[in-house]
Simulated scan of single mutants.
Amino acid sequence: MGLFKENPFGHILFLKKWLIRILGIMTHQRYKRFNKLEIEGSEVIRNLPDANVLFVSNHQTYFADVVAMFHVFNASLKGRDDSIRNIGYIWNPKLNMYYIAAAETMKKSLLTKILAYAGSISVERTWRSEGKDINRKVKFSDISNIGKALEDGWVITFPQGTTTPWKPLRKGTAHIIKKYKPVVVPVVIDGFRRSFDKKGLRVKKKGILQSMVIKEPLEIDYEDESFESIIEKLEYAIEQHPSFLKVISEKELLAYEEENEARRYSAKS
């Protein structure tokens, strides 16, 4: 790699590699010692092509979710089976990996700007800005940048656009899938909301059992399947379809939370 070689967004890969290394070392214990991360689906990661892969996930914190994915994906590519043990996997990370984030979030501080350089595709939200509901048109440059990232490598997206569970998915994700025809890989996460603050920067509780399930790629008819059908398929795949609320009662949800609270101590081992 040339010292000043750049990715399609003008980021110097040598610098990006060192940022990922440093951030990886700084955050590893958040998923390995302070909390326990259970992983399923490492073999799915190893069987994916090097580019044009779209990971679609539910969302629980601003940053802890995607940082965990950087750990898990890189560990999987280095032969770890459902584990992030031995952080040596971060020494040569996959550099063509990106995540979609709100532009206003990524501009707020020096830390978020550093996180952005590590792989963010910053987009302008069309429905909310600075805590207020808005209604503005999608920027074509944002869609183009997502396509550029897919052409170069892997992209992680959180199509609900919020850390609040059970919210409907944004239809823009279906438009991206129809337009660029990526391999679509669902990811389901849990436990991050309980273990981190909303931003995902501070450990709120220790000993929480976190989980990440990487599912097999979805079968999608890019030409003939409707946007609505794709969105519904995604909602089921990341377990955020409204029907899940009908089969999981409020009492069961409360019991689930209490169970995880009890398991937080056993997870320390």
Results as ranks from 00 to 15, higher is better:
residue 135 N to C: 07
residue 135 N to Q: 11
residue 137 K to F: 07
residue 139 K to A: 08
residue 140 F to D: 15
residue 141 S to I: 12
residue 141 S to R: 15
residue 145 N to Q: 14
residue 146 I to Q: 04
residue 147 G to Q: 09
residue 148 K to R: 15
residue 149 A to H: 10
residue 150 L to T: 08
residue 151 E to R: 09
residue 153 G to F: 07
residue 153 G to D: 05
residue 154 W to E: 01
residue 154 W to V: 04
residue 155 V to C: 09
residue 157 T to K: 00
residue 157 T to S: 10
residue 162 T to G: 12
residue 162 T to C: 11
residue 163 T to C: 08
residue 164 T to A: 14
residue 164 T to Y: 04
residue 164 T to R: 13
residue 164 T to K: 15
residue 167 K to L: 06
residue 168 P to V: 08
residue 168 P to W: 05
residue 171 K to D: 05
residue 171 K to T: 10
residue 172 G to N: 11
residue 173 T to H: 05
residue 175 H to V: 12
residue 176 I to G: 13
residue 177 I to D: 11
residue 178 K to R: 15
residue 179 K to R: 15
residue 179 K to T: 14
residue 182 P to K: 03
residue 182 P to V: 07
residue 185 V to C: 04
residue 187 V to F: 02
residue 187 V to E: 03
residue 190 D to I: 00
residue 190 D to N: 14
residue 191 G to I: 01
residue 193 R to H: 05
residue 193 R to G: 03
residue 194 R to M: 10
residue 196 F to R: 03
residue 201 L to E: 13
residue 201 L to G: 01
residue 202 R to W: 03
residue 205 K to Y: 02
residue 207 G to F: 10
residue 208 I to W: 08
residue 209 L to M: 12
residue 210 Q to G: 05
residue 212 M to W: 05
residue 213 V to A: 07
residue 213 V to G: 00
residue 215 K to H: 14
residue 219 E to T: 09
residue 220 I to A: 10
residue 221 D to E: 13
residue 223 E to T: 06
residue 225 E to L: 07
residue 227 F to Y: 04
residue 228 E to P: 01
residue 228 E to D: 15
residue 234 L to V: 02
residue 235 E to N: 02
residue 236 Y to V: 11
residue 236 Y to K: 15
residue 238 I to N: 06
